[in-house]
Amino acid sequence: MPAALAEPTARDRRRWVRYLVDERAEARVYRELAARRTGEEREILLALAEAEGRHEAHWLALLGGEPARLPRPDLGTRLLTWMARRFGSIFVLALAQNAEGRSPYAGDPYATPTMAADEKIHHEVVRGLAARGRRRLSGTFRAAVFGANDGLVSNLALVMGIGATGVAPGFVLFSGIAGLLAGALSMGAGEFVSVRSQRELLRATEPNDYADDALPDLDLDANELALVYRTRGMSADDALERARRVVSAAQASGTGAPRAGELAPTDTHDVVGGAWSAALSSFLFFASGAIIPVLPWIFGLSGLAAVVVALVLVGLALCITGAAVGLLSGASPWKRAARQLAIGFGAAAVTYGLGRLFGVGVA
């Protein structure tokens, strides 16, 4: 304990015990995650656990040894440990990133500056690990969230607007099913066209083997092959040097075939994905969200009861998708959930108001 600090109080010691328990739990989280990974990620996670062990030793030294009784780790850390043991998913790293960003050490006089600095670095390390998972997940996750959210909001707005006009429950149900199919088909068709068009654009812009068989006939000292490399971002000197090497090799072999890789296509279409799989995914994601507002009418509810149940179901779904986005982006899940809820209910309120304006009330 630094000499400048006052004699620790019982409250200080209780706080140190809490720190000790949380450090041990966080180290356990990182070891659980490391057990489910290999290579560099495993080494990084084990190094984080080791660092948490150094912090644990600091609090043990201040306490004068192992306390007789230890409290349980806080609920958030226990949840992290449970998820790490069973899933080892990107969600755990996202939650761990948030936890590292809330370290109290910077304002605690009994924590060393090194420990406070460690926690800030840990936040960046975990953020980097989480970013790897986010990049692997981003395409599918984006399609799932946006598709389901579009289905939730658009079909909720549709059934609210139709229901507010006072039409029969059967008509509301038919409208909701029609909206589900129309929206899902539109999403699927739009995704198909988008992916197919992107693949065609890539195919038109990437290198091809059209000129490969002309390589042996090019002039070694003055040839247009250098211009090809300059269009790909090389400097004039580097482009000319590479062109000479390629032409020399082609002339030595008597054919451009051995150097076909110089101008042949580099297939990057897998990055874009398949048009049919993207279309089917968009259809299913939209439909999975769009079916929820219609469920009350499917199960025979009508009038105000159906409206309330639909709002509750959609509200829960919007909160879940919003919280998931918040967790994966490293932001507050509560704020993202509230934002999704406000957007969805705002759209439904507009159409419901229009339905009331032009109709005769809820059936």
Rank of each mutant, 00 (worst) to 15 (best):
G273V: 07
A323N: 02
A287W: 13
A349I: 10
K335P: 01
H269L: 15
L284E: 01
G274A: 11
A348D: 02
G261P: 00
A348K: 03
V307T: 06
A342R: 03
S253P: 05
P258A: 12
G344V: 10
A260S: 15
G355M: 14
A252H: 07
V314F: 06
G322K: 10
Q340E: 08
A324L: 14
L301C: 03
L354Y: 04
I291K: 08
V271F: 14
F283H: 07
I291M: 10
A349W: 01
S302M: 01
G289C: 14
G326R: 05
G254E: 05
A252I: 02
G353M: 12
E262R: 02
V312Y: 09
W297M: 08
L301I: 01
G256H: 08
L311N: 09
R339K: 08
D270L: 06
S277K: 11
A278H: 09
T268Q: 09
F285P: 00
V307Y: 02
S332G: 01
T351E: 00
F299H: 12
A279F: 10
T268R: 11
G261M: 05
L318H: 05
G353L: 13
L316N: 04
G355D: 13
V309P: 10
E262V: 13
G353D: 03
L328D: 00
F299E: 05
S253D: 13
W276D: 09
G326L: 01
F345V: 13
H269M: 12
G261T: 07
G256P: 04
A252L: 02
I298A: 15
G300I: 05
V272G: 12
V325F: 03
L304H: 06
G326I: 04
H269S: 15
A349T: 13
L354E: 01
